[in-house]
């Protein structure tokens, strides 16, 4: 028996909106410890991992581990019927009485989980999620790739396109800066990676879920763009950097 109830459907809608450009079908792996999802995009250069903690739900019951294969576009269509403050219940067993009842077909998706080491990034930047989204969107109108460089002074975004170049530098803020505006940097050594902007722009669809975004970078590893949700844990996006030839 699996029963998840959330009194704010809007949260689930936002989560779904942030991932459905990247992935069409995915397994929601539900266990007593929470509901997680890991999926790669079709080109296998980007990946996302999502964790929804049990205490983020008003009701969370999961008697046995269950993997729900869902078509995300269909799920989004279903959720569009719910207002942001409506209650949404997901049952993977017999449903109980309720005011409205939507049923969705589950699908069998074969997927292999990747083991992702979390620690040991050379540079970790925390910055306002809206600022990161704005930069990616703006640079996306100029170039296809962005070079992100982190030094102890700040984070730099550089792109080059047909109409020339753009360069945005965000300086680290002082510790007294407001949380909303703060830019903090933890760094072992300077890192510079080149990334496809269209994926980064797609990741920023998660901006409504969190005030701050955490960007973790190391040479020779995928960049991690993480949004920490207030009550639901996190959503992380991974992107393999471009390699210069």
């Amino acid at each position: 028996m699996l029963e998840l109830r959330l009194t704010r459907a809007g949260l689930l809608k936002k989560v779904l909106e942030s991932i459905r450009d990247l992935v069409t079908d995915a397994n929601f792996d539900c266990a007593a410890t929470g509901c997680s999802l890991q999926a790669m995009d079709s080109s296998r250069v980007a990946m996302l991992s999502l964790l929804l903690r049990p205490d983020g739900f008003e009701h969370y019951r999961c008697d046995r581990n269950i993997s729900m294969g869902m078509n995300l576009a269909n799920m989004a269509r279903m959720l569009r019927c719910a207002s942001d403050d409506d209650t949404v219940t997901i049952n993977a067993d017999d449903a109980q009485d309720k005011i409205s009842d939507y049923e969705m077909k589950l699908m069998h998706i074969t997927s292999e989980n990747l083991e992702i080491p979390e620690a040991g990034y050379e540079a970790i930047v925390k910055m306002p999620a809206s600022l990161f989204a704005r930069i990616c969107k703006d640079l996306g109108t100029i170039g296809d790739t962005v070079m992100i460089s982190v030094t102890k002074e700040g984070i730099q975004f550089f792109t080059r396109g047909d109409i020339r170049t753009a360069n945005i530098f965000c300086r680290k803020t002082t510790p007294v800066a407001k949380e909303k505006e703060a830019i903090s940097i933890e760094m072992e050594k300077p890192v510079s990676l080149t990334l496809a902007l269209r994926y980064l722009i797609s990741f920023t669809k998660a901006t409504p879920l969190a005030k701050q975004v955490t960007i973790s970078m190391s040479y020779g590893r995928p960049i991690v763009v993480e949004y920490k949700m207030e009550i639901m844990d996190h959503i992380r996006f991974y992107l393999v950097p471009k390699v210069e030839e």
């Binding site: 990946m47 990747l114 393999v240 390699v243």
Partner: peptide
């Protein structure tokens, strides 16, 4: 800026 290695190269399957 051609090659973009695949995700599986970086993480192990569990």
């Amino acid at each position: 800026l051609k090659s973009q290695a695949r995700m599986v190269r970086f993480f192990r399957f569990s």
